[in-house]
Amino acid sequence: MHRVKVRIVQDALDANATIAAANRADFDRAGVTVVNLMSAPGAGKTSVLERVLGELGDVRVGVLEGDVQGSLDADRLVSLHIPVVQLNTDGGFGGECHLDANMVRSALGDLPLAELDLLIVENVGNLVCPAEFRIGEDARVMVSSVAEGEDKPLKYPLMFRACELVLINKIDLLPYVDFDLDHYLHHLDTVHPGVERMVMSARTGEGLDGFRDWLVGLADRARDHVHA
């Protein structure tokens, strides 16, 4: 036996990128705009969706709920009377901590894509791994809450750089936590200068209009594009 070196030079996540492109093609065919919603556990992804998705006008929206286990989040969205599909990642090694393109692909058959304009994929709560895996989405949005602390952009630059929009949630807690919004925004602009951001509280409803309009705008742009 002898040893031979085989030159490869391939992105380790090539396989994921290929499947993400296949998802993208399916979304385009169905005319669906896809948002990958990411955050740390407990930042308020589901709460924001609960408050916003029922008021998107004529935009037909569906949700793909990613969780390690259970359907607690999906159950919360049932009252909105929109298609919600639960995707659990615990089939793998102790439960994957993120959704990848293949997991999303496996759930596409359960979603009525042809009847949707907008699909929200609520990723597993985690500030590192979801940022690595594209799923074929149009936009990546992250929810960051004031209860998490103002240093988070500096600690998780991968996530804060990966998203096109940052929702700063739970601002009703500002009087009770040591969180200086100006410091936070400075950190955010250090890591991802100028990234679009919205300040809100899913609990009080403050600032949610902006995100609602943003979602409607995103879906409308895609619909105009299809009709053009």
Partner: peptide, 13 residues
């Protein structure tokens, strides 16, 4: 970067 640049394999001589 997150690349596999090469592998070393055993081959029968």
């Amino acid at each position: 970067e997150l690349e596999v640049t090469s592998i070393e394999v055993e081959e029968a001589s």
